[in-house]
């Protein structure tokens, strides 16, 4: 008996993998960015399926709402006709396929060897208040370190922008 969960899972997986493939393979680079956004949407759907609405909604807010917009914007600024007009050489293609196969097999073996496949028992879905308490109490040092890293990134970006402006006459 096929469960509805399985149907939705397969549908979402198709969206994720199809979006990722089109993100890599699209000739028009904007289509690639749209495919990436679809892939992020599919991942959000998978999180919904896993009873984690908090993570799913943040997946949409951060990845589709911010990262995909940033990528689209950057891509449009440098738009120069059609990209990737010349196809890959056959050796390059062979090496790529071989790398992908090796990576996929090794990842599958690693998953099979780990204990991930055995944790099938029903766990209670974590609420966002619980996540917030964990972050604010137990992992507070990590949170503050992350804040420092972000602040450093913003300062670096500002420095770069300033240097660029000085170069201009």
């Amino acid at each position: 008996m096929v469960d509805l969960t399985d149907i939705v899972f397969v549908g979402m997986s198709v969206v994720v993998v199809g979006g990722a493939i089109s993100a890599l393979e699209a000739r028009e680079i904007v289509y690639g960015a749209i495919g990436l956004a679809f892939s992020f949407f599919g991942v959000a759907g998978l999180f919904f399926l896993l009873d984690a609405p908090f993570v799913a909604v943040f997946q949409i807010t951060v990845y589709v709402g911010a990262v995909a917009v940033l990528i689209l914007f950057t891509v449009m600024l440098v738009r120069e006709g059609r990209w990737m007009r010349d196809s890959l050489s056959s050796t390059g293609r062979l090496v790529g396929v071989l790398t992908a196969v090796v990576l996929a097999v090794s990842l599958a073996l690693a998953f099979a060897a780990s204990s991930l496949l055995k944790t099938a028992e029903q766990a209670t879905a974590p609420s966002f208040t619980g996540i917030g308490q964990y972050i604010a109490v137990q992992y507070a040092p990590a949170l503050e370190l992350l804040g420092l890293v972000l602040a450093a990134a913003i300062l670096g970006a500002m420095m770069l922008a300033k240097v660029e402006r000085k170069d201009k006459p």
Partner: peptide, 25 residues
């Protein structure tokens, strides 16, 4: 009535810049 409704609203609002940008492009 999702438990994260407020963030959901902002996630959906965050999609509108993509739409405007794609329409323009």
């Amino acid at each position: 009535n999702p438990s994260v409704g407020v963030i959901f609203v902002f996630a959906l609002i965050g999609l509108s810049p993509i739409i405007a940008l794609l329409a323009g492009w």
